[in-house]
């Protein structure tokens, strides 16, 4: 693990136990997140992007387990640990202090019975309590940092007294209060209106600059990816199908799924009358996965050759693609 990498996931496989057999929701996932950088994990429902983030945090539901792979994290003390092998007790010390997470729906992540000040302060209590007076002072500073207006009054509000955008700011304050080195943001703006989303993305960028944290950004929105990420991993049906720095990925999308995704999104300012090109069909259910490439049933380039497992290979320097036809498709385009 090189010095400027904070998180290195290698060959991760997550399985969920079913009644008869188990299903692999995440397969063969590897990526690195550079210190101070933002990596976007992008994909649709069932792509495995959220399961990947829960596996990193050690928060998989009971039926799920990491079946293979390592999650190397380089902490504050500069010593790398494998989060996948950490005890629950050690993991609990990591969460909040080293690695924090924010979710899509702030209302369901906040406790309705406690004031926001108490909930944010609770994090400080868990990680070396500085005492009530200092706690309140630091919570107030944090609320001001995330730009909650009239923070001195808001600190004693309950979650239901805040708007959706304010609640997401509270979630960010809660995540940032112990100054974590890594923030995992799982669709943090998906439930918000577009003008509020712009505020929150702006805030996250500013905090990243000021606090130097690294962000693993989980999203389905290619627009948010283009705006926020340094690097991108596109997931489909539990696997990474394409991975590169953000600009090259948008300039030369190389996997048929990424290409399909980009032409199926309505973009502002497209020529009038031009129809979107949808990806036909739907994601295969986990119990009837095709034998080879998971995207092949929906792929316009698919042939029998695609019915064998496909590896993620480097198509160009730093640009990884999981498709045996990358060269042909590039020539075709």
């Amino acid at each position: 693990m090189s010095g400027d990498t904070i998180l290195k996931v290698s060959d991760l496989r997550v399985e969920f136990a079913g009644r008869r057999s188990s299903t692999a929701a995440v397969r063969d996932v590897s990526f690195s997140l550079g210190t101070g950088k933002t990596l976007a994990l992008v994909g649709e429902s069932g792509s495995g992007k959220s399961v990947t983030s829960l596996a990193i945090m050690g928060l998989l539901p009971r039926a799920g387990r990491i079946a293979r792979g390592t999650v190397r994290y380089r902490g504050r003390d500069r010593e790398a640990v494998d989060l996948a092998r950490l005890s629950e007790k050690a993991m609990r010390r990591m969460r909040g202090a080293e690695i924090a997470m924010i979710f899509q729906e702030p209302m369901s992540s906040l406790n309705p019975l406690f004031t926001i000040g108490d909930q944010i302060g609770e994090m400080l209590k868990l990680h070396g309590d500085p005492g009530p007076a200092e706690r309140r002072k630091r919570v107030l500073e944090m609320l001001e940092l995330v730009e909650i207006p009239a923070a001195a009054r808001r600190i004693d509000n309950y979650p239901h007294e805040l708007s959706g955008g304010m609640r997401q700011r509270v979630m960010i304050a809660l995540a940032m209060i112990c100054k974590p080195a890594l923030l995992i943001a799982d669709e943090p703006t998906t439930a918000l209106d577009v003008t509020i989303q712009a505020q929150i993305l702006d805030l996250m960028r500013r905090l990243q600059g000021e606090l130097g944290m690294s962000i693993l950004f989980i999203t389905h929105d290619m627009g948010v990816v283009a705006e926020m990420a340094d690097d991108v991993a596109v997931m489909y049906s539990g696997e990474i199908v394409e991975q590169s720095a953000t600009r090259p990925l948008f300039a030369r999308p190389s996997h048929p799924y990424t290409q399909g995704l980009l032409v199926s999104i309505p973009q502002p300012g497209r020529p009038e009358g031009e129809r979107l090109v949808p990806i036909p069909g739907t994601v295969p259910p986990p119990h009837s996965m095709p034998p080879g490439c998971a995207f092949s049933p929906r792929c316009r380039y698919a042939s029998q050759r695609c019915d064998v497992p496909v590896a993620l290979v480097e198509a160009r320097a730093g640009h990884m693609v999981r498709c045996i036809k990358t060269a042909e498709i590039a020539a075709h385009a």
Partner: peptide
């Protein structure tokens, strides 16, 4: 309109 994230880093 200016708040819409555009799927193009350029």
């Amino acid at each position: 309109l200016s708040a819409i994230p555009i799927p193009d880093p350029e």
